[in-house]
Design a protein around this nucleic acid. Structure first.
Lengths: 212, 212
DNA sequence: GTCTATATTCTGATAGAC
DNA sequence: GTCTATCAGAATATAGAC
């Protein structure tokens, strides 16, 4: 009978947390517009009324998940980029490898972010910009040093970011199409992503050194 | 008074076509879930009832647009890849340049395809596979020849397709994020995409030649 | 073919008992 | 805190007049 007020045990999570986990799963997979509140309730194993009791509205619940997902998506980057004193080449190696690990564990996040950013737009864009600013400054700054030192040829920040994201993140966004086109199953896909942890930094390096 | 039954003039398009154009615009921009049938009717300048009169349901209308968009998305590829007798290096140059032109004119298409493919999944996936198969075979075949001839080092079909799409298509999918991160306005973005028509083939070539 | 008005279903949110 | 029952509004689809 003390179940209600007992200390939180690892397996006996609170109703609030159950709802949040269900919401995170569904929102991340399908996006805000396609998820029904009744779906979340069912997934959480509770009643629809409880969702509103705890989170007031679908939108407020979503905002919560959105913020968490965004933070999750960005924090993987910031730790490696900002905290370590590494040469840019090594930094790229670590960031790419860590980020592919993160994406293997959270394959739906990039599409989720892009999708909701497209529709919600202004709402959260500013929050993201604040968190990403130091990351960009750090990377670009180090690249400019490398350019002055003559280790890379030319260097355009926009193309660099587009290439890094395109080679690292795109495979996860385009996964459904890529797999069909290339006849690659889930296991092989994962294996290729593991390969890319070493390949992408090589390719980025080759691109930076290529005459433009 | 003969307006109704007159021959179709270029500027006097039929009601059916007006609805289709409005639907294509809205579905492609916002995706199936976020578009309201009333919106389509308003955009087409007609009444809601006419939409159902001509297309029976929102879903049937969407399926029509989806098929057309998919065909549009793929045909740009097939013409260049299949019809011309060019070396693979030149072929890549032309495909990338033409495709970036196409994407500048239809920037929302890739995201639309990926988004609806994720949710609809099985429905249209098979249609896509049939159309894309010869394109892939042709490209991969020529690349294998180049490999045997020693012009490129190693070659993995999956990585190749992922890289080509990642460098060419991803900037359009990630545009909202990329622009914020790199402080690039619409005009500059377009200008960078123009640059990429020449840069991406160079980079793809550098990647193919890089030791792996 | 085109419209207005309405039916029907879906969905987010709340009231109120326990 | 949790549930059942229900409301209010939105969204798709249809009936029926013109």
């Amino acid at each position: 009978m003390r179940k209600k007020k007992g200390l939180k045990k690892s397996k006996d999570i609170s109703t609030e947390e159950k709802i949040k986990q269900a919401a995170r799963k569904l929102f991340t997979q399908k996006g805000y517009a396609l998820v029904r509140t009744r779906e979340i309730a069912a997934e959480a194993g509770i009643n629809l009324a409880l969702l509103n009791y705890y989170f007031r509205s679908k939108e407020k619940l979503f905002d919560l998940i959105m913020i968490e997902n965004l933070r999750h998506f960005l924090q993987g980057l910031s730790v490696k980029v900002l905290d370590e004193k590494l040469m840019i080449e090594e930094k790229i190696e670590r960031v790419v490898a860590d980020y592919i690990d993160f994406l293997i564990a959270n394959p739906d996040l990039p599409f989720f972010i892009l999708n909701e950013l497209r529709t919600n737009a202004s709402k959260i864009a500013t929050k993201m910009e604040a968190e990403i600013k130091p990351i960009r400054s750090n990377l670009i700054g180090q690249l400019q040093e490398a350019m002055k030192a003559g280790r890379i040829a030319t260097f355009n920040p926009f193309h660099f970011m587009a290439n890094l994201a395109g080679l690292t993140i795109f495979p996860f966004i385009g996964k459904p199409v890529l797999q069909r086109v290339t006849h690659v199953n889930d296991e092989e896909f994962r294996s290729f992503m593991e390969e890319r942890k070493k390949l992408v930094p090589l390719w980025i390096s080759a691109i930076l050194k290529a005459k433009q």
